[in-house]
Computed example of a mutant assay.
Amino acid sequence: MVLYKQFKLCLLLSIITFSSVANANVRNTKQQEFIDVATLLPTALFDIRYYSSNNFVGKPIDGYKSAKCLLHKTTAYALQKAHKQAQLAGLNFKIFDCYRPQRAVDHFVRWVNDPTDLVTKATYYPNLGKDELLGGYIAAKSGHSRGSTLDLTLTDSEGTELNMGSLFDMFDTLSNTDDLRITTRQRANRYKLKNIMVAAGFAPYSMEWWHFTYKPQAYPDTYFDFEVK
C-alpha cells in the first residue's frame, strides 16, 4: 500500500511537471510571434512613454526594460500597411505604447489605489479623482497585454505632432474621439488617424482617440507578462 501511494504521488508530480513545461513551451512559442515594430517601420517615430518617467504615473513602469514597440506579427504587418497610407498623405506615425506586460498593468493599479500620489494630476487627470479612473481608463486587465493593441498619433513630415485637442493619456472626456469641445481642425486630425487605422483593420476606442486594436486578435483571451526588452 505504501509503495502504491508513493507511485501515485510520483505519477502526479510527473504530470504536474510535464504540464508546467508544456505550458511554458506554449508561452515561449507565442512570445516568438511578437515583432519589434521598428524593424517594419524604420521611419516611424517611437516615444515609448512607460519606459520613461514621462507618463501619468511619473515613473518608469514595471516590465519596460527597453523603449521598444512589440506587437503580434499579424498586428505589426497591418500597422505597416497603415503607416504606408499615412506616408502617402505626407504624415508619419509617432507610437507611444504597444504590447504592455501584465506586471505594468499591475503597476498602474497600485498607483491608482494610492490616494497620496497626485504628482501628475494637473497634467493627466485635472478634472477627475483617482477613484474615477478605475474601469474606463485603468483596469486590472488591459487589451495591450494581448499584443494586438497600440497607442499612437500622427505627425507632419518634420515630426511635429498634429493637434489632437488633448494629450496622450489624458484621462478626461476631452480625449473622447468625438468630444464636442474640440475644434474643427482637431476633429479632422483625429479622424485622419482614425480613418487610416480603420482602413487597415484596426478598431478605435471611443474614449481615447489614440487607442486602436487590430481585429481579429491573435490571442483574445491571453494576457502576456514577458518583459519588453
Score class of each variant (00 low, 15 high):
130 K>Y: 01
144 H>W: 05
118 L>F: 00
125 Y>S: 02
125 Y>P: 01
97 D>G: 00
98 C>D: 10
140 A>Y: 15
125 Y>A: 02
126 P>I: 01
128 L>P: 10
128 L>D: 09
107 H>F: 13
132 E>Y: 12
109 V>D: 08
104 A>V: 07
116 T>S: 13
139 A>T: 12
110 R>G: 10
120 T>Y: 01
102 Q>A: 11
110 R>Y: 11
114 D>L: 11
147 G>N: 06
101 P>E: 10
141 K>G: 10
109 V>W: 09
142 S>Q: 11
98 C>M: 12
141 K>Q: 12
128 L>W: 11
122 A>I: 00
122 A>V: 01
104 A>P: 14
117 D>Y: 01
125 Y>G: 00
119 V>D: 14
108 F>C: 04
135 G>I: 08
105 V>S: 05
102 Q>W: 12
117 D>V: 07
146 R>Y: 02
121 K>R: 13
99 Y>D: 09
141 K>F: 14
102 Q>C: 01
117 D>C: 07
135 G>Q: 06
103 R>W: 00
107 H>G: 05
129 G>R: 03
124 Y>W: 10
140 A>L: 12
105 V>R: 06
141 K>T: 13
147 G>W: 01
114 D>Q: 10
140 A>N: 15
136 G>D: 09
122 A>M: 02
123 T>E: 15
105 V>E: 06
111 W>S: 00
99 Y>N: 06
124 Y>A: 02
102 Q>K: 13
132 E>R: 12
102 Q>M: 13
100 R>F: 13
96 F>Q: 00
123 T>R: 14
102 Q>V: 10
132 E>N: 11
